[in-house]
């Protein structure tokens, strides 16, 4: 009938903490035309293999991990390991299967093509 908590079994965390790297939101530009939406995100120093892009249920989650591998002695360090992470809402009109991404000069460019049915259409009037 003891209320004491300190004798209960619990999982032991390693006393050596696994270091959490800071998370920041990358700066983005979003532009749109009739056929697609383009998303540019600044992710300097992120390797292609460390980027994940997930689209699920109308939410686009971007994540990119940068590893700064220091060499020798540090004289100064203004940027370090970081995780770029940001989530966006994706309109229903996007054709998820055709989304593609490219990485150039530390900038991630996402092409989000619109589905055929969502494109603007000119309707012709027939002469009756």
């Amino acid at each position: 009938m003891s209320e004491r908590q300190d004798v209960t079994v619990r999982e032991e965390a390693l006393s050596e903490r696994n270091r959490q790297i800071p998370t920041v939101a990358p700066l983005v530009d979003i532009v749109e035309n009739e056929n697609e939406i383009l998303l540019f995100a600044d992710m300097p120093g992120v390797d292609k293999n460390n980027i994940s892009i997930n689209i699920d249920n109308g939410r686009l989650a971007l994540s990119g991990v940068r590893e700064v591998k220091p060499v020798g002695a540090v004289i100064w360090e203004e940027f370090a390991d970081v995780e770029y992470r940001r989530t966006f809402s994706v309109p229903q009109s996007i054709d998820v299967a055709k989304v593609n991404a490219e990485l150039k000069e530390g900038v991630l460019l996402l092409h989000l093509p619109k589905a055929e049915s969502a494109k603007p259409r000119q309707i012709e009037i027939k002469v009756g």
Binding site: M43, V71, A73
Partner: peptide, 18 residues
Amino acid sequence: TNMYDTGENLEIRVEVPG
């Protein structure tokens, strides 16, 4: 920027996305 000293060299890294 980051600056490192490796003894033989100085190494400077600059964040210049895009």
